[in-house]
Design a protein around this nucleic acid. Structure first.
Lengths: 155, 155
DNA sequence: TGCTCCATGTCAGAAGTCTGACATACAGTT
DNA sequence: AACTGTATGTCAGACTTCTGACATGGAGCA
């Protein structure tokens, strides 16, 4: 409620601000997705599949920024609800291609519109310059962070 | 790994990029925090308390971008470990001020250094212009998203 | 004063995500 | 061909966070 601002270097931290922005976006997305019975991860998975049909579970996990175990759980859920289909046998290796069903496509259409409205609102409050700056600097951030990661987990 | 580029508008979405950057930052932070036995939320709470002693649970929750229920759970945990102390009685209203213990301060010092190294790495990969651009545009994003939050009209 | 509205702290249960572990499949090397 | 390394899918269990609900304390107003 009351910011003195003086001693708070969290307020000047780019990392903190990034988290704040991401949190605000997520909250806004969840707000419009909830009436549709969907979560953000849910939607991300479907959107990914719409744009790149046949993605594997692991690829979807990377695209949605969760572990492949979490994505596996989600996929089982989505398959049970008839939103996606997975090959019973792997055509090659162990990779199981996943695809949207017509029903999944319908659900996604509504969700996509809802999410788009959020992104539109976000962009509407920014100048053209700010949008370009945001894109460039965020890409730079990702690049920097990925560079020195190697230590812990693979890939 | 390979972008066909044509149909993937996720790659040009500012929202997706924001999520990607945030995810990369979070992963990098968790990687350096794990050896210290801390999580990001854990650290956020302590850092908040160091900079604004006496914050209430709800205020901490907002600062760490979690629900007050989650923060409550975390605070009980932190109190049991002797990292923070909470007044048994509310001096005013129901608000329970929380403070760091000397031990909490020591733990935070190490965590803070680790997190700072991540932020330094992130900033090092960006030009001075990019940093300023990132700050300005992210603030703009947050502002836009917060504007229409309560009014989740039936868009 | 009494009433309404809002914020806080907390409990309980549900849901989601993560880590750890294992078996399998392919590529590259020897 | 055999071995090593990497990647995938999956199961199991633990942990974290969330939603829902309730009681309490204070501010504002009739």
């Amino acid at each position: 409620m009351e910011q003195d601002g003086a001693s708070i270097h969290l307020e000047t931290s780019l990392g903190y601000l990034l988290k704040e922005a991401s949190s605000a976006l997520r909250a806004a997305m969840e707000e419009v997705l909830r009436p549709l019975g969907m979560t953000v991860t849910h939607y991300s998975c479907l959107e990914l599949l719409a744009q790149r049909p046949g993605l594997s579970g692991s690829e979807l996990a990377r695209g949605a920024f969760v572990t492949r175990q979490s994505m596996n759980t989600l996929l089982q859920h989505l398959e049970r609800e008839g939103h996606v289909t997975r090959a019973a046998e792997a055509p090659v290796g162990k990779v199981l291609p996943t695809r949207l069903t017509p029903r999944g496509r319908r659900v996604l259409a509504r969700a996509s519109a809802a999410v788009r409205s959020v992104e539109v609102r976000m962009l509407a409050g920014m100048t053209e310059t700010e949008r370009a700056d945001a894109f460039r600097s965020l890409q730079s951030m990702v690049r920097s962070l990925r560079e020195g990661e190697g230590a812990a987990d693979g890939a």
